[in-house]
């Protein structure tokens, strides 16, 4: 049971991350490769506050969301107007810089050894989450809140404008809306949510090191999104389930243990290609990933 609870917590964290990625990639057509950077910043900042101050989850979440959001503004400010691939390159660079800082700023981040023994989060400053099941319930709450937020964003005028930008940016600009502003906000919210996922991860595991927040992790989140499908709520949900649960199921097929990890990755790669051939819009998506 503990094993299943563990998988479910990880799944909830990935649901938050992939939903956040959907906001930038699926809704506003900004392909980012730095989701894991915000995830990492959130985890490390969250750890800092959990270690130093005895404050509640909501306070930490507010601080971390503001901090990751403001960090995202740095990229937005300079590169939101860059078209297509240049934006990808800018986010790639940001991802690599964040990873290098996490890996090398040993006095604060502990370098490659990471930080261990992180205290778990407190709700309303009173109830400390102890053990795996409280974390499971709490991660469900946060994931559900994220999905609710996304649903509301998609249905709101903001979401409608975003979808319009995705379909035809020039038409949106011609009707007098500031497309860059909308994209900046989408990126801001996405970064803030990834930061929250980071706090959850740090509090649950309770050990973080830079290897969790690499470029590969960003690519992993990106492929989860594209497998599931972009542009709606169901897609990212299914994508997260696909990339987290399917590899675990393969554990029970009885692969030889020494090659199991590699074989799982190969099957994952194959399924990526097969999904792109058979359903380029993703398992539950509504739209094909557009041209850059």
């Amino acid at each position: 049971m503990l094993y299943i609870a563990h998988i479910l917590i990880i799944l909830n964290i990935y649901i938050i991350l992939v939903q956040a990625a959907n906001l930038t990639i699926g809704m506003s057509n900004l392909l980012t490769l730095c989701q894991a950077a915000f995830y990492g910043i959130g985890a490390y900042l969250g750890t800092l506050f959990l270690n130093q101050f005895n404050i509640s989850f909501l306070a930490i979440a507010a601080i971390v969301m503001t901090a990751t959001g403001v960090t995202s503004l740095i990229i937005s400010f300079a590169s939101i107007r860059l078209k297509g691939d240049f934006f990808i390159f800018a986010t790639l660079a940001f991802q690599m810089i964040v990873f290098t800082i996490l890996n090398n700023w040993t006095t604060v981040t502990g370098g490659p050894n990471g930080i261990s023994g992180i205290p778990s989060i407190k709700i309303f400053g009173l109830i400390q989450l102890k053990g795996i099941y409280p974390h499971l319930i709490f991660s469900y709450v946060v994931a559900a809140a994220t999905i609710l937020l996304m649903r509301n964003i998609i249905r709101s005028p903001f979401g409608r404008t975003m979808r319009a930008i995705r379909t035809d940016e020039i038409a949106v600009v011609a009707t007098g809306r500031n497309a860059s502003m909308y994209k900046t906000w989408a990126f801001f919210i996405s970064a803030a949510l990834s930061g929250v996922a980071g706090i959850l991860y740090a509090s649950y595991i309770p050990y973080i090191d830079p290897s969790n927040f690499t470029l590969d992790e960003s690519i992993f989140i990106l492929s989860a999104l594209f497998i599931g499908g972009i542009g709606n709520i169901k897609g990212p949900l299914l994508g997260a389930v696909f990339v987290v649960v399917i590899p675990e199921l393969l554990r029970f097929v009885g692969l030889p243990t020494d090659i199991a990890a590699d074989l799982r990755q190969i099957i994952y790669g194959l399924s990526l290609i097969i999904v792109m051939f058979c359903r380029p819009q993703g398992i539950a998506g509504v739209l094909q990933p557009s041209n850059r």
Partner: peptide, 24 residues
């Protein structure tokens, strides 16, 4: 008639297959 992004995701799949086959 797949878009560039679809090709990129398929390329990520290819990368996973090649690297892990070699590691295996």
């Amino acid at each position: 008639k797949a878009t560039n992004n679809v090709a990129m995701i398929a390329s990520i799949g290819l990368l996973a297959i090649i690297i892990n086959s070699i590691a295996m």
